Simulated assay, not measured.
Amino acid sequence: MTSRVVLISPAMNQSLRQARFDDGGTLDADGRARASAVAGSLPPAARVVVSPGVRCRETAGALGLEGSEAAGLAGLDVGRWRGRTLDEVAVAEPEAVGRWLTDPSCAPHGGESVRDACARVGRWLDALRETDGRTLAVVEPDVVRAAVVHAVGLPASGFWRLDVAPLTATELSGRAGRWNLRLGRPLDVPGAGAGF
């Protein structure tokens, strides 16, 4: 039995463009258009799940996907930093940002630590390992990072070393108690790319 998980990062919005911690903003016109252009490029799936964030739900809709919302796949909770840019927070709380970026157990913003987010996403991923078929999951970039950290056994400190571009697919296949990884492939316009 092989479980396949395709993690799709959301299309572009103003928060992503400004390196702003997610503030619940909607997709911008370009992000929506790009997601709509690649609708139909994804393989059939036994399950579709979506992070509860607005940009993930809107990306799923633009891709023509209907799925259940998965609270366990919410983006990293950054507490009081929500809606602010990393630069703004770094000016206001330089020591806190420094600790947060170097210590995965630290959550100076009053939200969730990177280590806790990786464990939460890892539990979801482990539950899928014994599930046959493909799961499509439209999730925040930090959920993709956490899944990769867990799947390949990276230390939680590796979380910040993984970049996830908008509207890309990261594929995991699980069998025999382990995961294999295929990183960040751009979604293609149907009929124009190599496909899945």
Rank of each mutant, 00 (worst) to 15 (best):
V97D: 00
P43N: 01
A137H: 01
V121R: 07
F159P: 07
V144A: 02
D142I: 02
R115Q: 13
G153H: 08
L101C: 08
V91C: 10
A151F: 03
W124V: 09
V149K: 07
V139I: 02
E95D: 15
H150L: 05
A62M: 04
V89T: 09
R120W: 09
L154K: 01
E130G: 13
A92Q: 14
G64I: 01
R123L: 15
A151R: 02
P141A: 00
L128W: 10
A119M: 12
V89A: 03
V139S: 04
E130C: 13
G110K: 06
A74Q: 07
D132C: 14
V148M: 08
F159E: 05
G122L: 12
E93H: 07
D132M: 14
R120Q: 10
V148F: 12
R120D: 08
A90G: 15
G111A: 11
T85S: 14
T85A: 06
L86Y: 12
F159A: 06
A90W: 10
R55I: 13
S113M: 11
T135Y: 12
V48W: 01
G98L: 02
S113F: 09
A156C: 09
C106A: 14
E140T: 14
D142T: 14
V121E: 06
T102S: 13
P141G: 01
R134H: 08
A46N: 13
D77C: 11
A74W: 09
P141V: 00
C118E: 03
P94M: 09
G67E: 02
G110N: 00
P108W: 00
G98H: 06
G64Y: 02
R99I: 08
G158K: 12
G53R: 15
R57K: 12
C118T: 13
A156Q: 02
D103Q: 03
E88I: 00
A119W: 12
G98K: 01
V148P: 05
W160F: 11
V138A: 07
